[in-house]
């Protein structure tokens, strides 16, 4: 049971939502945007989250879009994960989402909620980080379209009163070769020791020929998901063995490395090393 009371609002438009936020905030009600709500309810129940007003954005049409338009996949932030999985426009995303929580929970968890949540893992963001997607953010100034790499630093950098409306991915990036591997302490349930998501993508070099580059993003190693240019540089070194490249990449992991009941930091590094070797071998064989 949630011990404290809050007001509940369900605006039907982006404009209403952001105006409402301003009003409630000015009244000291510490409003929060609400989509699937699974994390909000879980944290509120144990008093790790407090608000006097909830703004449920699920009735906003732009937040429920799922379509391919103008060679882009547009995903509304309020889409439940299972709806996106069933549509399967973006196989890497589908595979990654299927490893989050369990099927019934994924009927309620939304893509925007996972990306903007407080949980460390937020694996839904990984495919978007790799595919250089754009996010659409609503705020008092209107809508802004921003490359996700510019606004996702450990978490989505939203200003007060802003919320995520959509994620847009180029159609060309939807079918790239990929691996998505989630390693847990045991079995198929629970939080990850490490999740590695990687793709190969062609990039033009100075001689106008195309080279394949591996892009990789991680979750579970740190209290935040990330993609690192340095690590990608290490992994894409020409003429070096897989083992050498992986050993080099491991030296550039961002700190802190999680050290908890799921696994020690040393064990996580060990698992990551093996997982990265597997990922590289698989992608380079294609």
């Amino acid at each position: 049971m949630i011990q404290f009371d809050f007001e509940y609002y369900k605006p039907a438009s982006i404009y209403e939502a952001v105006q409402l936020f301003q009003t409630l905030d000015s009244q000291g009600k510490q409003p929060i945007y609400y989509s699937g709500g699974t994390e909000i309810i879980s944290l509120a129940r144990i008093n790790l989250l407090y608000t006097k007003a909830v703004i449920d954005i699920k009735d906003i049409p732009e937040c429920n879009i799922l379509r391919i338009q103008d060679n882009q996949l547009v995903l509304g932030a309020c889409l439940p994960l299972t709806i996106i999985e069933d549509a399967n426009h973006f196989p890497l995303l589908t595979k990654t989402l299927r490893e989050i929580a369990d099927h019934t929970n994924r009927n309620k968890i939304t893509i925007g909620g996972n990306i903007c949540g407080q949980i460390y893992y937020r694996e839904a963001v990984l495919p978007f980080l790799l595919s250089d997607s754009q996010v659409v953010i609503a705020g008092i100034q209107g809508l802004k379209y921003v490359p996700i790499q510019q606004v996702f630093h450990q978490q989505l950098q939203l200003q007060k009163g802003e919320f995520l409306v959509q994620i847009i991915t180029n159609e060309n990036d939807l079918q790239l070769p990929f691996v998505s591997i989630k390693k847990r302490q045991q079995w198929d349930t629970g939080y990850p020791l490490v999740t590695v998501v990687a793709i190969t993508k062609s990039s033009d070099n100075s001689s106008n020929s195309s080279t394949k580059q591996i892009h990789v993003a991680f979750s579970g190693m740190s209290p935040f998901p990330y993609r690192s240019e340095q690590i990608e540089e290490d992994l894409n070194q020409q003429n070096a063995s897989v083992q050498h490249r992986v050993n080099l990449a491991i030296t550039h992991l961002p700190e802190p490395i999680l050290n908890d009941v799921e696994g020690s930091s040393e064990y996580r590094k060990f698992v990551l090393k093996n997982t990265l070797q597997h990922a590289l071998t698989t992608l380079e064989a294609e």
Binding site: G37, S42, T82, N107
Partner: peptide, 19 residues
């Protein structure tokens, strides 16, 4: 606590009644 909401199973401990 799973219930069916519009044909979809949902854990009712993670849904507000007002939803």
């Amino acid at each position: 606590c799973t219930v069916d909401v519009d044909g979809v199973p949902i854990k009712s401990c993670l849904m507000l009644a007002v939803e």
